[in-house]
Amino acid sequence: MSSTAAETIAPLSGDNRPFAFRQFSPETLKTALRQMYLIRRFEEGAEESYMRGLIHGTMHLSIGQEASAVGSCLALSDTDQITSTHRGHGHCIAKGAEVGRMFAEFFGKETGYCRGRGGSMHIADVTKGNLGANGIVGGGLPIAVGAALSMKMQKRKDVVVCFFGDGANNEGAFHESLNMAAIWKLPVIFVCENNKYGMSVSTERSTAVANIAERAVAYAMPGVTVDGNSISAVAEAVHVATKRARAGEGPSLVECKTYRHRGHSKSDRNRYRTKEEIAEWVAKDPIGRFETELKDYGILDEAGIAAIRDSVETEIANGIEFAKASPMPDPSEATRYVYSD
């Protein structure tokens, strides 16, 4: 935990369950698990499609980071905004996107969210408040602050969740953005998904502080480091930060310590980390943990979990079929959408 501790949620008397189980209905929790599966299976489906030559270019998979995506978006509405990263498929799904249109985008199809113009790194669904993934590390940070300025100027109660990775915390954009959000008390929650590596360079080698949340001190905002593989821990920290933002009290920084099971991108040969380290984190998989909790607290049993998994399989298969069957963009329209029509 960083030195500027966030408000903690007092357990209801006699209720020692984790925050998410006290805060959200069983239906919401089941939906959250379903979204985590959906992200996992989407990523695996994308990886498989890539291997089969259905997707070109590259992609950055978020397998292992599902808790930070879903936990951060749990209490957001469609009018709350997010900015996302190059590792943004999970954020997109957590904010309510349809996997069929996402696969279609990855396949370069006209029915994709970006009509095949953006691909994995620019996936967005503005109708659900997702302002987009970003190919530039740190690119989304000032944009999130600008969106938060809009919310304030338009007197909306909506907030902006700004996802970024540990790599972005050494970009100038990070520091400029946190400072501006703080001086103007803007409703933005900076959610750092610290998966330990900026491509190949570890945070120990790249970052002067042990916990990125400590950097909140420099910008006079609450900063908290949580177990990013615990959906409840993420949801709790973001809930507190969101409450503060909606109350007009300004931004917060939430650091989610997590891990990507796959390499940085398709070119990664994993030379910078050990098999043991990867195995250790795979054992801390956020989905398995959440399943266990749901069973322990009597919200789901094995049959219920199997039913959710089955429905996700169907949705993924249908999504891939939709994408395959969709039309390609017309090359005569290659320069369309550069300017407004």
């Binding site: 900015t83 600008g146 954009a173």
Partner: peptide, 17 residues
């Protein structure tokens, strides 16, 4: 903070300002 300032303007333009 020109990078941040320019980005704030981009974000505001994207969201209705």
């Amino acid at each position: 903070a020109e990078l941040g300032g320019a980005g704030v303007a981009v974000g505001a333009a994207l969201t209705g300002m």
